[in-house]
Design a protein around this nucleic acid. Structure first.
Lengths: 213, 213
DNA sequence: ACGGGGATTTCTGTATACACTGATTGCGAC
DNA sequence: GTCGCAATCAGTGTATACAGAAATCCCCGT
């Protein structure tokens, strides 16, 4: 694996997990020494982060970690509702019903995953990730898929702001199951509506349990 | 201006104007010598182009200019309809009516710009660009605006494929005027419908007059 | 004591040298 | 003649050295 890839992954994780707080300046020499690489691959990693919107170049002060305010979260979910609603509708039109029926079944069993002794909810998020991937594959639109991928980076960051308690995750699993069911049924409008419902409830939950950093 | 910025702008223009055809490999040493800069800033330019989707890294063969097929154009317009439809609706809800009334008036006079002896239709495209900027400003959603900006790069490239004849541009100006009118009237659903109409006609025209390269 | 100017230092931006990987070509053997 | 292996070469990935700019700090003057 290339050094620039490792630097990108490390910095990306540090930002997403809020170990690098918004406003932190990422000086090239400092970070290259911390990660044990040279400045050249680090610069490439920083450009990629900036292209994704996780950092911005603040004049000649180097790059700084971007902030996410409550207004940003509103904007983020506005775009997310647009993109994922359309994606769910397209998946209902073009997707393979069997795949989403299978996912619906797994999602209905998801509460077992959440109540397990996995504090990071790894299995649960992996299942949700599989639903996202299935939708990506079903829509067969690389531009839309790319737009959603670039959004999800910011959403993972927002998710860390909220308290993902057991009750919310159980409800979210049911909402995801409803989306999968609508897609499997080949009903675009229902799939879009289920997505809208899920995102609105997610947004409400995030804003209600927002822990200021 | 930085050398990497100049390299980025030069390569971006070369790709958009189809001087660099899809499939062309952009070898680092070759391009850095052609542009009179070193490899370091050129690599930064290439990463930016790759992040935008204008190029892709093809294994160890360096980066190659991405292709745009007819299926890509369908996907592109599918996403464009989603994003610009939502943007028009939001602009109708949040925008300043006076701004869009003014733009509507100018767009109704646009045929005069098109029939002038400007083969590049510079004034006309500048006016359309002002409408895009006004919508960007009105929606006050940086994520959505960013997503549309990254799309427009590809759209300019597609536009070069079509024969932008006088008749189509005149009709397009009227369609743009209709969008501006709906936004000025504060009617989100009408604004979205007008956008859908315009994009469908644009897509039909592109596919009808497509010049294979 | 406060303000301004200059010098120093620390940063980014660029160039270049080096290393390593992967491909291509040529030579030899079957 | 063809297949295989090896050697060379081209080209990317990385490190480092240098230059230029900007910010900060210190010193001097008022």
């Amino acid at each position: 694996m290339r050094a620039s890839d490792r630097a990108y992954a490390a910095l990306r994780d540090d930002i997403i997990e809020w170990r690098l707080r918004p406003g932190t300046v990422l000086a090239e020499v400092e970070q290259s020494e911390r990660l044990g690489i040279s400045r050249t691959p680090l610069r490439e990693a920083l450009s990629r982060l900036t292209a994704e919107g996780l950092t911005t170049t603040a004049g000649s002060r180097g790059v700084v970690v971007t902030d996410i305010s409550l207004e940003d979260i509103d904007e983020l979910f506005e775009l997310r509702e647009t993109l994922e609603g359309k994606a769910a509708a397209l998946a209902a039109e073009r997707g393979d019903a069997a795949v989403f029926l299978q996912l619906q079944g797994e999602l209905l069993e998801a509460p077992a995953l959440i109540s397990a002794a996995d504090p990071a909810r790894h299995d649960y998020y992996e299942l949700v990730g599989r639903l996202d991937s299935a939708i990506d594959a079903a829509i067969s639109n690389s531009y839309l898929a790319q737009a959603m991928r670039s959004l999800r980076v910011h959403l993972v960051r927002v998710r860390r702001l909220a308290a993902d308690d057991h009750a919310r995750l159980t409800a979210a699993a049911a909402e995801h199951a409803a989306i999968a069911e609508a897609i499997a049924a080949g009903n675009p409008r229902l799939a879009q509506a289920a997505t809208t419902m899920h995102l609105h409830r997610s947004l409400s939950h995030v804003k209600a349990t927002h822990k200021p950093h």
